[in-house]
Write a protein that binds this DNA or RNA. Structure first.
Lengths: 125, 125
DNA sequence: CTTGTCCCTCACGTCCACGTCAGGTTTTAG
DNA sequence: CTAAAACCTGACGTGGACGTGAGGGACAAG
């Protein structure tokens, strides 16, 4: 499949796919005229890349992680990398849960009837 | 306290504190010569701002949220904002948990003894 | 008064995952 | 064969949260 089809079927932009190639995250074949040609595996690969980006990983980190996910390269370095990123994500989750709890507290306070409503529409004329 | 002291005691840079003022997130008093003077509440405020930034909120969103946390302004708009951000954070947490699970799968596979260790140091000469 | 340290205001630089435009080529439909 | 659609390679723009000087005041210590 060509780049446009991959783009529409994965929901990422054509520019993003070319950027992934720039970052060596997803290298397609080229047909005679120089056009990119992706195989079926590219679909899952793009999804994975998007998920990892969404988790806050950088291109460089993803580039390092992909061989671990793909070929199960199992070196001390790769294990350290995996565990390091896992821990980073766990810390980020903890942070987010903390923020959500804080927001929940504010929300429940604002929903309680005892809350001081300074700017309600009810004008007791 | 002046800006340098606040910076060192909160761990954020002086530049960041001035940026917060630019964004109207934390407005200090000014002493005759134009120097910023922060009170004790600024310590907590800076921590809160940092936490919200870490959760991926923008300056603008934080600016909208702060009055809710502070003065419990309780309008339909503020409740919608709070709930919207809460949901966004929940989705982000779910995404992160998903990525962590994926990494865990790779990690446990790489730690299992049945794993193909292509590049170990153990050279069975 | 002077020195040293802290502080001030511009204002440009950085990083990163793309968006977007320009100018040209390849592929596909008819 | 032709026209349209899709694709190509640069290369500059963007937004956000600051970093990093430049050039000059503010303020406590001696």
């Amino acid at each position: 499949m060509r780049i446009g089809e991959l783009a529409t079927s994965t929901g990422v932009s054509v520019r993003a796919l070319r950027y992934y190639e720039e970052q060596s995250l997803l290298i397609p074949e080229r047909s005679g005229g120089g056009q990119r040609h992706y195989d079926e595996k590219a679909l899952d690969r793009v999804q994975l890349i998007q998920t990892l980006y969404a988790a806050g990983l950088s291109s460089r980190t993803i580039l390092d992680l992909l061989p671990c996910v793909d070929a199960k390269v199992n070196t001390p370095q790769s294990r350290a990398l995996l565990n390091g990123e896992r821990d980073r994500i766990t810390r980020q989750i903890d942070q987010l849960v903390q923020v959500r709890d804080r927001l929940d507290a504010v929300i429940s306070a604002s929903e309680s009837p005892a809350s001081g409503c300074l700017h309600t529409d009810a004008d007791p004329r």
